[in-house]
């Protein structure tokens, strides 16, 4: 566990150096370079040590490239001073994530994510141009809210996640394997006791419509299989989600009512800081 701890600590220190100062103080460019180098060393070390791939060489290569692009895009989204840069790096995060979706065998989701988030990012651009850019570089973009504590908390959480992942990975004994059995195997295991509650839950969650393969063991076509399970097993979910979209539309229209009284007495941005 020493190597991942050191790698995560390096990444945390590097990210802290890349974040804005808490009072918006200027940092020399050298510190930025050191921070970027530390974060890069930590994250590349962690990912290259613990991403494992088998099968064709190209899919392993793409897995590595997409993972690195996603994580670096994430770091740069969080640490960029300009919201336009943040939005652009967030686009790279989205594209890498859709690449990972493709590698995991979810092409419909990859296409859907690109379509949905392309619109979302363009809207974010419009908002940045409308709201942020007319004041020029804002002071609140160059100052962070308690960056040290936030970095410590978040990377502590990351260390806990990596620790639990790796401590499971090291355990190839029978007990360790049993901990992550696919539920369809539990269904086969409990079939002798049809009244057992675990069996009823697992068999309800593992109907034939929700599996990748049909009864003969052939793989279903992707979108057809997804649509089959979406409109049989998850019909109520689909209806609820549709209702939720409609409610969100009504809510968004309601809270941006232009006739509301605007600008009551209260603190506004200090004028010296906006420039």
């Amino acid at each position: 566990m020493i190597f991942p701890t050191v790698a995560i600590m390096l990444a945390a220190i590097g990210t802290f150096l890349l974040l804005p100062h808490r009072h918006g103080a200027l940092r020399p460019g050298k510190l930025h370079l050191i921070g970027a180098a530390l974060a890069a060393v930590g994250l590349v070390g962690l990912l290259s040590a613990y991403l494992s791939f088998s099968g064709p060489f190209l899919s392993g290569l793409f897995l590595m490239v997409f993972s690195l692009f996603a994580v670096f895009g994430g770091v740069l989204t969080v640490t960029s001073r300009s919201p336009i840069d943040s939005a652009l790096w967030f686009a790279s995060v989205i594209l890498s994530t859709t690449g990972l979706f493709l590698l995991a065998g979810a092409p419909f989701l990859a296409a859907g994510t690109v379509i949905v988030y392309a619109g979302a990012i363009i809207v974010t651009f419009l908002f940045v141009i409308m709201l942020a850019q007319m004041e020029g570089k804002a002071a609140y973009d160059r100052a962070a809210r308690s960056p040290g504590t936030s970095t410590f908390t978040c990377f502590l959480l990351f260390w806990c996640l990596v620790y639990s992942l790796l401590s499971f990975r090291a355990d190839y004994t029978d007990q360790g394997k049993k901990a992550l059995l696919p539920p369809r195997d539990y269904t086969a295991f409990y079939v002798v006791q049809p009244d057992f509650p675990t069996f009823r839950v697992f068999s309800a969650a593992n109907r034939s419509t929700s599996q990748f393969v049909d009864a003969e063991g052939n793989r279903k076509p992707h979108v057809a299989g997804l649509g089959e399970t979406l409109f049989t097993d998850y019909l109520i979910t689909v209806e609820l989600v549709g209702a939720l979209l409609f409610i969100a539309l009504v809510g968004a229209v309601a809270i941006t009512d232009p006739k509301l009284p605007i600008r009551p007495a209260g603190p506004t941005a200090p004028s010296g800081l906006a420039a």
Binding site: L19, V78, V128
Partner: peptide
């Protein structure tokens, strides 16, 4: 990383 950005940044769009 998303959690870090949500906690540490002050710009609402970010």
């Amino acid at each position: 990383l998303g959690m870090l950005g949500f906690l540490a940044r002050r710009n609402m769009i970010v």
